[in-house]
Design a protein around this nucleic acid. Sequence first.
DNA 1: AAACTCCCCTGATCGC
DNA 2: TGCGATCAGGGGAGTT
Length: 273
Amino acid sequence: MPELPEVEMVVRTLRPRLVGQNITAVETSGLALRRPIDLKMLKRACVGARVDAVRRIGKYWLIDLSTEHVLLGHLGMTGRLVFADADAPRAAHTHAVFRLARGDELRYVDPRRFGVLRAYAAADAAQSAELAVLGVDPLERGFTVRYFADSLAASRRDIKAFLMDQSRVAGLGNIYVCEALFRAGIAPTRRSDRVAKKAEALHAAVVTVLKESIENRGTSFSDYVDADGQSGGNQRSLWVYGREDDPCRRCAGRIKRRVQAGRSTFFCPRCQK
DNA sequence: AAACTCCCCTGATCGC
DNA sequence: TGCGATCAGGGGAGTT
């Protein structure tokens, strides 16, 4: 579910409600996410900690704690972070609860349990299994046209698979890959090293598609909400994703769907070459 | 290096 | 109305 813009919205809505707050206790459901949750490590990091900062790298959210630890999470397909009063009933599939000294709780809810929730010593986080493999975040300074063009030139995979690969560009998922390729006018099956000439246009398309979605508070198909419980509005601005057989908004031709790397790709055969 | 297949898990939807 | 098949915005492991 959540790709870079949705995680960015979660981080932005967490920040004012969480920074400066103190965590007094942590609980978990006992069920594993993608991997089992290490409750001992979560407690070591969180109990008695003050939240110093909330940030994002790719699709990961990070909470910096005064204990010199970092809480790191990924929302998978269906993960949510929600605030609730401590005595409010817990939603089904609540797998972690962080009690705040203020009296309320931050809860991690994830029906499909494809998410990640881990704590690291602050000095170790960047070298963690999750973060060490990530490429450049497309909204950071390091995402230059040069970096992107060189990276494209070095790959013979199709451009859809390339853009989905978090070790190249960290944060794009199925929706924004489809949208960025449409915006740049590039067919999803083109070989990466052969779109190098269009690297600048594709680079701009990636950045624009992400920024526009953030302005629209992210894309909500079914379950995505930010930490205030708000749905996004970007689903109304999509050009191709989820629009199989609908008319292209640019040329009025028919939007097609094909399966690539195990996932649906939506594209306009007339607008994307 | 990259493509495949299968896997993790729940829930919504669709065709019969 | 019920029921199974299929699909979903995520990633990873193991195999060619």
